[in-house]
Write a protein that binds this DNA or RNA. Structure first.
Lengths: 226, 226
DNA sequence: CAGAACCTGCACATGACCTGACTGCATCGA
DNA sequence: TCGATGCAGTCAGGTCATGTGCAGGTTCTG
């Protein structure tokens, strides 16, 4: 399985060990990683701003707190990851109001695992940095594509990672080594020349969609977008 | 929750007070009004032709009747509002064996309220009830089929779940693992290759009805519709 | 000019994916 | 009861996209 960079770090706050287990297993099956909190206190400790958590799954009916309060606390702490609330059947009223207020999502217990999985990924997608647009050039991670106006070119995973690394700071120069490290994340050792091949392919594909942005070389340093 | 601001009068026939409560609250929060029936008899009394009800929500597993029969009775009575059936998770077989009580919609319990709200509003908005459509491609859960214009292909349950999972986010790539987790919900372990076989079958069936939508592979990542 | 850095085109191994056929199982109707 | 049917899942073998490296040419810099 190729690492495509869209693994999501999910923070779970749930007191029931069985439910925790089910969620954890399903998410790991889906290729994600999980951080656990057993109650509101642990949630604030483990799922805060600096935890790297991208999506929150919060049980509303915690023994020591309401999941929405936990959410509020985390938000106040600078954690803005979208939340998926788990609620029991008999707490609808609060749930609905919370949902309307937040823009987050919720699922009623007992839930289908596939439902949770799909929703988590949907939330993660929405929360991800919006498709960065550099003078008309748009990178679309969901489709591994780059498009300008209505023209689209599909990229391979490696091509996409490389272009994304360079496009991250439009205008400024990305060093060769930096680009390699970004496009080959797991420390893979690639031939010096390989990156040139990819740069070339990217140039060809960008040209094929009449991109207004050019992928130029800064000799002795790296590459940049103009 | 987005809707078009039109208030809809929804008729609910459901014996479980908790579920009634959940539905009622959610629909009211969504800006709709509700008429209640606790069983089949009350449904025929309260939700008939002259009740003004625009959308029906009918539990299939009523104590005194089958929701489908209730629907039939209402139809015979001149009530032609589109119906949303609630079915228990373990009664999928009924659905497979196909009730065509008017090509309406259904939701499997346990359900997410947002799901119900979306479907109710969808049913209310359209003159004829219509399941989710992706650029001409229509998935019909009632009949386990997919059709485009007047051409229809029937799917097996597994095929349907897989296609539904991929069609859920049209345009964006659904990763292999996600698709597997969604189409084989109970954590079943299937051979790596199995999904390929199903993808192929779906492609054949989509081609057989001249689908404008193609089920394409994004190598190393997953599948997408376009 | 020399040497380095980079570009270009191509070759090729790998593995992801496709394809068609097969087996086992459950259901259904005669 | 028994075969017919259809579905789920597996398998073996082939195909092809992708990632990678190489050879040779071109451009830049001093």
């Amino acid at each position: 399985m190729v690492h495509d960079g869209r693994m999501t770090l999910v923070g779970i706050c749930e007191d029931d060990p069985d439910v925790r287990r089910v969620l954890t297993d399903a998410l790991k099956m889906g290729g994600h990683r999980v951080v656990i909190a057993r109650n509101g206190r642990e949630a604030v400790e483990n799922l805060g701003r600096d935890s790297g958590v991208e999506v929150l799954i919060l049980d509303i009916g915690l023994p020591d707190a309401d999941g929405r309060d936990v959410c509020q606390a985390l938000r106040a702490n600078g954690q803005h990851a979208p939340a998926l609330f788990l609620t029991a059947f008999d707490a609808v009223h609060d749930r609905v109001s919370g949902f309307h207020a937040g823009g987050d999502d919720y699922v009623v217990k007992p839930f289908a695992i596939s439902e949770v999985l799909v929703r988590v990924e949907s939330l993660a997608r929405r929360a991800r940095p919006q498709p960065a647009s550099i003078s008309g050039l748009v990178l679309n991670p969901d489709r591994l594509s780059v498009h300008v106006e209505d023209r689209e070119a599909t990229l391979t995973p490696t091509e996409f990672r490389l272009l994304a690394a360079i496009a991250r700071e439009p205008g400024s120069v990305v060093r060769r080594r930096t680009a390699v490290a970004a496009a080959w994340p797991d420390g893979a050792i690639v031939h010096e020349n390989t990156i040139d091949s990819y740069i070339r392919r990217l140039r060809v594909k960008l040209a094929s969609i009449d991109s207004p942005v050019e992928l130029t070389t800064v000799r002795g340093v790296g590459f940049t977008l103009r």
